[in-house]
Design a protein around this nucleic acid. Structure first.
Lengths: 158, 158
DNA sequence: ACTCCTTAGTTCGTAGACCACACTATTCGC
DNA sequence: GCGAATAGTGTGGTCTACGAACTAAGGAGT
């Protein structure tokens, strides 16, 4: 029951987190990737390159992802004033509305996973996970909170 | 810093776990889904329906997943002796070898995520996560350990 | 100005993942 | 037997993701 045990529980926890995320995404008519994209745009417009870095996606993958979200009217590409090559991806009004509702819903669902825990266990869990995240220069994970100083925002993601 | 916080850290932890899994999969020439499939077959052959249940996949999705793994020579479909409709998916020799190496590697990588933690924090983390898993009748997550009594194997996954 | 290099994004072709739906073959309950 | 449920396949479609080739626009140095 060494590291193997910890690896196994981490993986299985990750699995149910992903399933929850998937389920909530579907209920809002989104794919998980689109939902993640919208959430990352909630605090404000972001450039394609930066988004790709956060999500660990190649730029061509980003183009496709944003294309599809744009086709659904959830985001728009705003030309960057000081660099005519670049563009910023921004939420539309319906996109903002949807993202907000989704964010709220998924936050509840995920927090509910720990409902069976005692309050101080929940607290300790959050702290411990934060230690892990901080130690790995976490690069965003689909919630705008990612841009708050939970982990080192300026640090390189590896 | 209410439940929202916990939701955020859970999600971000899940993100880095998935990234680790993805990275190791790639190093072994596998997609994460194929890697997960192989790992679930390590303890022995399993029927398509059961696999689909564990992975939350429709049967047609299972067909494709197994097809591709079979095309690569990693698994075979063994006709079920007592039900001529059914078949069991089993690892081939190369499949077993690859799955074993992958499992070993990914276990190390995931356990390494918690390297910065103190030993008793790691222990407590594993215990707490186990509580969450047990409370949610976890349905397997890509490691054969899934078939051990960490969570209730017979319980419905919702 | 004028090359050369880098950077931001798009386009295209390919492969995998996943689903819904329609379909076949078998088993089971009565 | 007969009808219903079950195991699995096949089809068509969308989404995800990648690499390679490409365009357009900065930036550096001479």
């Amino acid at each position: 029951m060494r590291g193997e045990q910890l690896a196994a529980v981490l993986l299985r926890l990750s699995f149910i987190v992903q399933q929850s995320y998937l389920e909530v995404s579907r209920e809002h008519g989104l794919t998980p990737q689109q939902a993640q994209l919208l959430c990352m745009l909630l605090p404000g417009p972001v450039g394609m390159a930066e988004l790709g870095g956060w999500l660990h996606l190649e730029k061509s993958s980003m183009s496709g992802l944003v294309d599809r979200a744009q086709r659904r009217g959830l985001v728009t590409r705003v030309p960057d004033a000081r660099d005519r090559r670049a563009c910023q991806v921004a939420l539309t009004a319906p996109g903002t509305e949807l993202a907000t509702r989704f964010y709220d819903h998924v936050s509840r669902s995920l927090a509910a996973l720990a409902d069976g825990l005692r309050a101080d266990d929940r607290r300790r869990l959050a702290l411990t996970i934060n230690h892990i995240l901080a130690a790995h220069g976490v690069p965003v994970a689909g919630l705008p909170v990612a841009r708050l100083p939970v982990a080192d925002e300026t640090a390189e993601a590896r």
